[in-house]
């Protein structure tokens, strides 16, 4: 133990992570959220695919037009965007209990008086939520399998799209985690994170009405806008930097918020 302090520290985070994962699956939260997500995204997938089939049928007489129809562009891209919206609505429900519940039940006192740092606790919780999220999004790979069976989608943009979804989800979770650290009421935490996420989603809309520089900044801040490059198959450092720094900042502020929550 003493000769490998880093390992011990990792293990404490891992203990928190496993505890949170267990909590997700012992309570119905994870099942409910994942089920609703899959139902909604399945509905969108079916809807989009049916429309695509209809178009294929309509243009079947015109080989030139038929060539223009692209599974990636016409099915996966709108699907990713629709999923992003569902995720925006649903991640606050995954994150709301992370700190709020500990504060409500008083178990925060156990964590904060145990020899674990705020970072270990926060990272453990973030990790657990991210795993649930990745599992939820990962199941939708089945849709891709359906496309593979009946068509020839380009696999590159799909993979990069999923990478984008994971990064975006991580950013959503970091916002939710922060909101959860503010309060001992889960509903309040969910409302705050939902509001913040929606604001980050809509902030890009303002870019048309303000100056060019300001507009660029606002559209850069737009949390879903960065997903579009990934969905198109473009992995841009700019987007990765945005999401990664967003997540790190979110976690950093959460740690500070947890630290100071007992001071007030």
């Amino acid at each position: 133990m003493a000769n490998n302090p880093g390992n011990t520290q990792m293990r404490k985070s891992l203990a928190i992570l496993e505890k949170e994962l267990e909590a997700y699956f012992v309570s119905p939260i994870a099942y409910a959220v994942i089920t609703v997500f899959l139902l909604l995204s399945g509905f969108f997938f079916y809807n989009i695919l049916s429309y695509f089939n209809l178009q294929c049928l309509q243009y079947s007489q015109y080989p030139y037009m038929l060539e223009q129809l692209n599974v990636n562009e016409m099915v996966m891209r709108p699907l990713f965007h629709n999923m992003a919206i569902i995720i925006l609505l649903i991640t606050p429900l995954l994150t709301m209990r992370l700190f709020a519940e500990e504060r409500r039940s008083g178990t925060i006192e156990l964590l904060m008086t145990s020899p674990v740092t705020h970072w270990q606790v926060t990272l453990g919780k973030f990790g657990a939520c991210f795993i649930v999220y990745a599992l939820m999004v990962g199941i939708t790979l089945l849709y891709t399998a359906v496309l593979m069976m009946h068509g020839e989608p380009d696999f590159g943009p799909i993979l990069s799209g999923y990478l984008g979804l994971l990064l975006m989800g991580a950013a959503f979770i970091s916002v939710g985690l922060l909101a959860s650290s503010f309060t001992e009421n889960q509903i309040v935490a969910a409302v705050i994170s939902f509001g913040a996420l929606l604001l980050f989603y809509m902030i890009g809309w303002l870019s048309n009405f303000v100056g060019t520089t300001m507009g660029e900044i606002l559209s850069y801040l737009s949390i879903v806008e960065h997903l579009d490059d990934f969905v198109k198959g473009v992995i841009d450092t700019k987007d990765i930097v945005f999401y990664v720094s967003f997540v790190l900042f979110g976690i950093f502020v959460t740690v500070r918020s947890v630290e100071s929550s007992t001071w007030r």
Binding site: A15, S105, G106, S114, P115
Partner: peptide, 23 residues
């Protein structure tokens, strides 16, 4: 004063969790 327990856990699992957190 408010005993910090995770109500969904078994006693043994709770103590195991605490022992891990305490290193």
């Amino acid at each position: 004063e408010n005993v910090p327990l995770y109500n969904h856990m078994k006693v043994k699992d709770y103590l195991r969790f605490v022992s891990r957190v305490k290193g």
